[in-house]
Design a protein around this nucleic acid. Structure first.
Lengths: 110, 110
DNA sequence: AAATATTATCGTAATATTGCGATATGGGAA
DNA sequence: TTCCCATATCGCAATATTACGATAATATTT
């Protein structure tokens, strides 16, 4: 199996899970943090920064792009990546909403 | 190779990635949401709620327990699970800190 | 003690992810 | 055009995740 039974869950649950998956790798977090710090940068810089092979870095960038968190624009022979502030904000909101659900009534267990 | 090169990244990056991984599955999100809603409940209820096999549900519970988000206490022949409010709050804080990093200066790309 | 109920663990199969070398693709320079 | 440079994609190997039936472990009931 190894395949997630998405049909058992709500759209909201699947979406949140996918959003979490997008950032569920240290390399992708490192990419995002570097993009935040530098505001924007090209693939080559990220390859150096991460210490992973160029192919691997490119793959992680693709996943982040698929998730919509980053966008890439062609800059001559290079590609310049940056965070999409709108999607980023949406991520922040969705995660916040999820974590806000707990009403902290002291010790809650049985 | 399929193995994450954790040594290339900071402890903070690896931790955040692991926290994201813990909630990166709709079944685990469904479990957490149900625990929030009912405050606490036993494995059997969760098996019914999810529609996954008992073994699979138990496995997801184990992962959430390993992540520290939930705790289980033996209740006769059953096990009663609930959210650990302290860890939950910590998750909220860590994700918030991460998403807060972006200074929204309009259009940021190259 | 024996039967039943509840949950965890084991073993296994299917699929997904991670990583990299090799190769393709497309732009800029000679 | 031909030669580089930067990046993406392909193909493959190793490992991880997801799922479930079968079984083990433990508590309760009969």
């Amino acid at each position: 199996m190894g395949i997630t039974k998405s049909d058992l869950f709500t759209r909201q649950q699947n979406e949140l899970a996918n959003m979490a998956k997008a950032i569920a790798h240290p390399a992708r977090i490192a990419i995002l943090q570097h993009l935040i710090k530098k505001n924007a940068c090209i693939t080559g810089d990220l390859v150096e920064e991460l210490g992973l092979a160029q192919a691997t870095t490119s793959q992680h960038l693709k996943e982040l792009k698929n998730a919509g968190i980053i966008q890439g624009s062609i800059e001559g022979a290079s590609v310049c990546y940056c965070i999409d502030p709108k999607v980023w904000k949406q991520y922040n909101t969705v995660f916040n909403m999820f974590f806000k659900e707990v009403k902290n009534n002291g010790s809650s267990c049985c």
